[in-house]
Every structure is written in structure tokens, then in C-alpha cells.
């Protein structure tokens, strides 16, 4: 089984080294590709100096476009699964085994690591907590299964999921929408508890003040997705 760890990174020069070393230490079986999404800093050079494969996108496509580049690469190179591992250091590579398990046992086409399923001591602002609750409620109702961490970017994608997401993948803030699309496509989604820490550096694209705007936008996008034709 060939497994590719896709690390989307946009201006993560402070974190990228730690992320790659973490993955190499705890998941030596996987290949790594850093998708440098048009960073203006040294993300690409630092990743390259560590001997990692780096795909430099010519300009910023957003996390959705960057991940899709990873999916394309994985399919072209014949990988069986992709692990999404964000470049900001909030995911821990020692959790990879845990989120791979449902895919290995063929119970899932899409595995989501959830910070809320176990008490991992993850704290965030009130706005974010409320937003996460609302999104979780909406997605759980629509998919008919309980999903606690809809925005988690710590995921495993199996081959059928990769093929599907190569043709359809939302551009910005894709995580929540991807769950709805995957459900509509009939893919099996499994959520597992995983520790997800705070980012080790850099800045999130979603500030607290923008959390509300983010939620409204995602909710709207979900309803558009519900109407979308999927074949």
C-alpha cells in the first residue's frame, strides 16, 4: 500500500520543518509532498532543503486547489491513499496510525480526525466553539451520521475518494463542503478521535472576527452543494 502525506502550506516557514520532521519520525512508511500554495516566504526552500518533494503552485489557489493538486499527484503516481496533514503544525504525526485504521480495514473511504471526540484539551474561542457546534449539527443532520469536527483538516482519502475529489473539490474552506459532497457521492465517512493541537506558528486564515462570516459562507455553500448534480 503506497500512502502519500500531502502537506498543504501557505507561508508556513516557521512550522514546515517541524511538520516534516514529525511525519518522518512517526510515519516513515509514507512519502511526503509539500504543496506550496504560492507562499511569499521561504516555505518552499526550507521544505526542499530537507529533501522533501515540493510542488510549487505558480500562485495561491487556496487550500482547496492546493489539496486537489495533491490528489492529482497521488493518482498520477499510483498511490492508494492520501493523508492530509496541515503545514501549520497543529496535527501530530503519531496520530496517523489511528486515522489510517478505518481505511486499512476498508470501513471508510474518507476518515476524519476529530479533536472533539476525545478530551484532547483543545481550547478555542467562544465564537469558534459555537460555530463548530452549529456546523456539526447541520452536517450530522444532512449526512445522517454524527460528525463532530467538520472543519478538521486531518484526513485520510482512499482511492475512490481521490478520484471523486479530483473532479469536484471546493476551492476555499473546502473541509465542510467535502463531507457533504462525499456523502452525496455515497462514500463511507468515518470519524475517529485524534489529538489536534494549536498551530505551532504562523497565522490561521480564519480569525475570530471572521469566524461568523466563515460559518455563514460555509452554510450557504452547503445548500448549494445539496442542489449540485453529482455523477
Amino acid at each position: 500500500m503506497k500512502i502519500l502525506v500531502v502537506v498543504p502550506a501557505y507561508n508556513e516557514e516557521g512550522c514546515i520543518r517541524g511538520v516534516i520532521e514529525d511525519i518522518r519520525e512517526h510515519f516513515p512508511d509514507g512519502d511526503i509532498i509539500v504543496i506550496n500554495d504560492g507562499s511569499q516566504d521561504n516555505t518552499s526552500a526550507i521544505a526542499g532543503s530537507l529533501g522533501t518533494r515540493v510542488a510549487d503552485l505558480p500562485y495561491n489557489l487556496g487550500i482547496g486547489g492546493a489539496m486537489q493538486a495533491g490528489f492529482l499527484y497521488a493518482l498520477q503516481e499510483g498511490y492508494d491513499a492520501v493523508i492530509q496533514f496541515d503545514g501549520d503544525g497543529q496535527h501530530h504525526a503519531d496520530q496517523i496510525g489511528k486515522i489510517l485504521a478505518p481505511w486499512r480495514s476498508q470501513e471508510a473511504d474518507l476518515v476524519v480526525g476529530s479533536r472533539f471526540l476525545s478530551d484532547s484539551g483543545f481550547t478555542s474561542s467562544v465564537q469558534r466553539k459555537i460555530g463548530a457546534k452549529i456546523l456539526s449539527f447541520v452536517v450530522s443532520s444532512l449526512t445522517g451520521q454524527r460528525i463532530t469536527d467538520t472543519t478538521s483538516g486531518f484526513r485520510v482519502y482512499g482511492r475512490t475518494t481521490l478520484e471523486f475529489f479530483c473532479s469536484v473539490y471546493p476551492e476555499d474552506y473546502p473541509e465542510v463542503e467535502a463531507l457533504i459532497l462525499a456523502h452525496k457521492k455515497g462514500l463511507k465517512i468515518v470519524e475517529v478521535a485524534s489529538e489536534i493541537g494549536p498551530r505551532t506558528g504562523g497565522r490561521s486564515s480564519i480569525t475570530s472576527s471572521r469566524a461568523f462570516y466563515y460559518m455563514i459562507k460555509v452554510l450557504l455553500a452547503i445548500f448549494v452543494d445539496l442542489m449540485k448534480k453529482i455523477d
Binding site: 510542488a55 486547489g65 493538486a69 492529482l72
Partner: peptide
């Protein structure tokens, strides 16, 4: 095109 270009460079 941007995605394929990134992949090709890699």
C-alpha cells in the same frame, strides 16, 4: 493548469 504545472515541476 496551475495544479498540473506544480506537479510537472515536481
Amino acid at each position: 493548469i496551475a495544479q498540473e504545472m506544480g506537479i510537472l515541476k515536481t
